[in-house]
């Protein structure tokens, strides 16, 4: 595992711990060597080496595995989460909470007692049509409400971002991809300091919001081309059409994903370039000669 690969996993664990309400300051981490754990402060992360909960031991807390090998022979009074590496819950072992597996290799003995076993399934296209319709409607409701509010209350703002998208797509794509990537790396490294973890979480949420903002503006742009008089209704229809197109693009291998990414970065750049729509984006003017 390279540091570049390990750092994001540690960040994910930090985020999960924060969201789960545990105390990050109480976290202990194993990076190398062989260890027997007899007690836990609150949370333990296995990042490397070999860690064992011995047969007669009962540890109170949650265990996260992101690398190395973990053997549970005794009792874990809490949850066990596997993100990478190897996990074995052996004969006679007990996990009172949930054994959540995202990735890596997990072996659970039939003679072990586990409160609940949960295997993370990444969302796939094969999920039920009902689930997908509900997901689509949820996204439509959020974006639609936001788009409607912008068009009805701040039409100039959404018009500015829309103009940036239509008139300077390439510039927005460049600024969007540079801005989104650098901010993402910045927030990840901020999270790693622990002190700035809340700032990093807020930053990531804001980045996500900017992507949604861009999507709403794409919907607005489609709406302006529809034969509907009322701006708000046209925007709603446009957003529905835009989301539908995004869904359909998902079915096209490779190119569909690239197109979705391009749309996201163009929208991101347009929002940044217009200061969230507060100012019309005008590139510098270069004289064509004397």
């Amino acid at each position: 595992m390279t540091p570049t690969e390990a750092i994001p996993l540690l960040i994910v664990v930090l985020l999960m711990i924060s969201i789960g309400g545990s105390d990050v300051q109480e976290m202990s981490v194993t990076f190398q060597g062989d260890h027997d754990i007899e007690s836990l402060a609150d949370v333990h992360v296995v990042a490397g080496g070999a860690t064992t909960v011995p047969e007669n031991a009962t540890v109170d807390g949650n265990v996260y595995v992101i690398g190395g090998t973990t053997d549970i022979d005794g009792t874990v009074d809490g949850d066990v989460t596997l993100l990478a590496g190897n996990l074995s819950v052996n004969d006679g072992a007990t996990v009172t909470g949930t054994l959540q597996t995202y990735s890596g290799s997990a072996t659970v003995s039939s003679d072990a007692s586990v409160g609940q076993i949960s295997q993370f399934e990444p969302p796939t296209r094969s999920s039920s049509p009902a689930q997908r319709v509900v997901g689509f409607l949820l996204r439509f409701l959020v974006l639609g409400a936001f788009g409607w509010w912008l068009v009805e209350r701040h039409p100039l703002v959404i018009e500015n971002v829309g103009a940036a998208i239509t008139e300077h797509a390439l510039v927005n794509a460049v600024v969007g991809s540079l801005g989104a990537t650098t901010l993402l790396v910045l927030f990840v490294y901020m999270a790693f300091t622990l002190i700035l973890l809340p700032v990093a979480i807020v930053g990531l949420i804001v980045e996500f919001f900017i992507v949604l903002y861009g999507q709403a503006v794409f919907g607005y742009l489609i709406g302006t081309r529809l034969p509907i008089e009322r701006d708000g209704v046209a925007t709603l229809a446009g957003i529905a059409a835009f989301l539908l197109v995004l869904e359909l693009l998902g079915f096209v291998p490779y190119l569909g994903g690239i197109a979705q990414l391009v749309v996201a970065v163009v929208g991101f750049g347009a929002v940044l370039n217009t200061y969230f729509g507060l100012q019309r984006f005008e590139p510098v003017t270069i004289s064509r000669g004397t």
Binding site: M1, T2, P3, E5, A6, I7, F31, G33, A47, F192
Partner: peptide
């Protein structure tokens, strides 16, 4: 950051380097 991480946790860092 990679070098600091590798210095602190040599087992995790290994010998590989990311092309990123």
């Amino acid at each position: 950051s990679d070098l600091r991480f590798a210095a602190l946790f040599p087992t995790i860092a290994g010998q590989e380097a990311s092309p990123l």
